[in-house]
Design a protein around this nucleic acid. Structure first.
Lengths: 358, 358
DNA sequence: CTGTTAGCGCATTCAC
DNA sequence: GTGAATGCGCTAACAG
């Protein structure tokens, strides 16, 4: 990496490095018109490219935003990533990407790497885990992030706050009303569906999944329905497929005339897709033999059949808002529970074919 | 960003900065055991986090890999991104992400940003454009990258080489046999399909699309079939949808008894999905009223119905290989056409339900 | 094996 | 308005 330096440009232009710096990057003082042109030409002819590392070192601001996701190939995360990218571009920053497979240990590692790179902000998009086995890693993650924020770093988190991390300057959370929305969804389904409810959730302790399950059960109760049975599996398409295979077997062994078909609520859309795939593979139809609903309204759903009922979340916007919020002036009033000022994420229950006619 | 520095750690431990550096980061020389422990403790108690920017400046190596894609929310790119991410992690680097909406101008901008950040390598995943209107931007892009490589940067490109960029040290291309695979697909379809062929391609001048169209036509010719009509539209789901809408109208106005249903080849899977969606919306069925085939075999296809015929490409592996190749020792022999040594990307024609029974 | 001395490339106080 | 110092935090040659 032996590119030409500011000093070389300055020498060629016959000015001081300071002047060259002033013209090449927008300084407060505007250098002389003639001089400026000379410097620009010198830079051009040398193919000068400012060294962002050196600039960062001198200015103590890197223009980097670190993004932590579970899996970039997952449509949920790639949609959020798009929003983060868009906000970053708007704020003239670049995004550093890290994937973690969802483990707090991986998140801690990524956070450390971002801290080392002195990212201006870190955005964490994956769900927290409250599982006992993750508690040690969670503490380390919290410690890492606390230090990061104390050193002036900004942190934006989608959904639940980091476990063990106290409210502090530079730390913002973007609340996602998973519980309320799941409750609404349950109420809507209960109104049109007679059969029993089954919930296919992620691993016990995965915060987002837990919130959705809780809200759903609550909504069911509010409608005077018994609590749904809950199946725990991986929070992914294949997790849904496995659960769907189980459920299909159960449906098959059921006397044909025994009551209404069940309504299955999956913790997210990719799980719902997996469930439908499994049912279909066993010769069952949706919504004929079972209704299925998901959560998120990812892009894939648009052309998936049967059209899946779900809860729409503005994923792209979530990515934008959490990024913008993290970058926002930390001195700005930070209302209740470190929520991000002036931005409220709202979702929409969308009933579609997969839960029709029960 | 006022984290503690190496100097502070050194002082607390009562050693020189050099020694502290040696123990905290793996240097050639291993410091004394007792000293090492003292330094580590000091670092721990101060919450020291090495400043990667400063390290990069001193070592002239940033540990950064710049990835340029058209759209990170597109499953094709997010799958490749996952591969890049995995290779980067393996090589202990981080990935910087840039999205460009597919314009050479955007790519040039991203390349410049990466060059400024002194990324160890730049990986470009999007298709090139040979359109006349992009020629100026292409030149700028080539100039930017040429300078980058000349300064010691590494460059890996998926598919076609950068237009106007000569072979040079550090520049590697990962060839993707689009043309051959499209030819194979055409041959396979021609063998089972009687009706006329239609190609729904991306914009004229989009290299990947052009290659696939060319290969497809060639395959048709090889099978003694007339050339297919080619429709140009956006290289996206919505582009496919638009074309599909047009085709549906045409099919509807066709006398019911006039020949076999057409076979539509889409330039990529998301377009194929759009086409199917449009046909379905107009009450037409696939493959009943028209057969449809795509390209890439993206993850979404797994649960899409009807199952789409396509050409499988190892997207994740493409991301890995292009990254590893770019990072590889540039002194290694670089066979024919700057192809990456020892790695050959191969695809597979996969005929499925969407082109069955014509 | 450890400490000292120089930069890496740039932004930014200050004097002029 | 411009130039001359100084330092950002760290690594890499040297010398001891």
């Amino acid at each position: 990496m032996a590119a030409s330096t500011l000093a070389e440009v300055a020498k060629l232009a016959g000015v001081s490095p300071a002047t060259a710096s002033r013209v090449l990057n927008g300084s407060a003082r505007t250098p002389g018109a003639g001089i400026a042109e000379r410097v620009r030409q010198a830079a051009e002819s040398l193919g000068y490219v400012a060294n962002a590392q050196a600039q960062a070192l001198a200015k103590s601001s890197t223009g980097l935003i670190g993004l932590i996701v579970h899996d970039i190939a997952d449509p949920y995360f790639s949609a959020i990533a798009q929003g983060v990218q868009s906000a970053a571009r708007q704020e003239r920053r670049m995004v550093l990407l890290a994937t973690t497979d969802g483990t707090p240990a991986g998140e801690k590692e990524a956070a450390a790497a971002f801290a080392a790179r002195r990212a201006d902000a870190i955005v964490i998009a994956g769900s927290r885990s409250t599982r006992a086995e993750d508690s040690a890693a969670n503490s380390e993650l919290a410690a890492e992030l606390e230090r990061y924020c104390r050193n002036g770093g900004r942190l934006g988190v989608v959904g639940q706050g980091i476990i063990g991390l106290p409210d502090m300057a530079g730390y913002r959370t973007l609340p996602v009303p998973n519980e309320e929305l799941a409750r609404e969804l349950a109420a809507a389904l209960a109104a049109t569906h007679e059969g029993p409810f089954v919930v296919v959730a992620g691993p016990d302790g995965l915060a987002t999944s837990d919130e959705r399950v809780r809200g759903f059960q609550d909504g069911l109760a509010g409608a005077g329905r018994p609590a749904a049975e809950v199946l725990h599996t991986a929070f992914s398409r294949n997790g849904g497929f496995d659960a769907g295979t189980q459920l299909a077997a159960r449906l098959a062994s059921r006397p044909t005339d025994r009551g209404e078909p069940p309504c299955i609520f999956a913790g997210n859309d990719v799980m719902a897709i997996g469930i439908v795939a499994a049912l279909r593979k066993q010769g069952l139809s949706v919504p004929g033999d079972a209704a299925v609903a998901g959560f998120d309204d990812i892009e894939w759903l648009r052309d998936f059949r049967p059209e899946l009922s779900t809860v729409g979340l503005p994923l792209d916007d979530i990515g934008r808002q959490v990024t913008l919020g993290a970058l926002a002036d930390p001195s700005a009033a930070n209302p209740a529970a470190s929520g991000i000022t002036g931005t409220e994420i709202t979702g929409t229950v969308r009933l579609r074919r997969s839960t029709e006619g029960a």
